[in-house]
Design a protein around this nucleic acid. Structure first.
Length: 116
DNA sequence: TTTATGACGAAAG
DNA sequence: GCTTTCGCCATAA
């Protein structure tokens, strides 16, 4: 076993496990997930971890939003206008779970924010 | 094996 | 509300 067996999982691995624990109908901010994953101060790691996740992953990445309660701008403005995962998709998924959006597309973290 | 780059959100003013 | 800054990690060669 390598030293990286179990006591040294990559940050992305912990983030994946944490996001997978987010209950349905609730959303967590990147900082929230990072804090639960033991990576306080590395919220950006969560964003990168989600980017590395495969499409068929069972991780509810759509439940992760930024601290403003807005949809996590994944990579729609990266230059790929033909992206298969527009922001609308994430919003549709959250609405399907019962999460309500503000008229501007914002979520009330005070109401739907994940509280561990 | 090492080095270098890229890339992401949060916070503050 | 908007913009800029900071530092960290993983990947690739």
């Amino acid at each position: 076993m390598k030293a990286r067996g179990s006591a040294r999982l990559t940050a992305c691995e912990r983030i994946r496990a944490t996001v997978d624990v987010i209950p349905r109908g609730r959303v967590a901010s990147y900082g929230q997930v990072a804090a639960e994953a033991g990576l306080v101060g590395r919220a950006r790691l969560v964003g990168r971890a989600l980017r590395e996740l495969p499409e068929g992953s069972a991780v509810p990445w759509h439940r992760v939003v930024n601290a403003s309660g807005r949809i996590a701008a994944r990579a729609p403005a990266r230059g790929r206008a033909s992206e298969a995962e527009p922001e609308g998709l994430q919003r549709a998924r959250l609405e399907s779970e019962g999460v309500r959006f503000d008229a501007r597309g914002r979520i009330d973290l005070d109401r739907f924010g994940w509280r561990p």
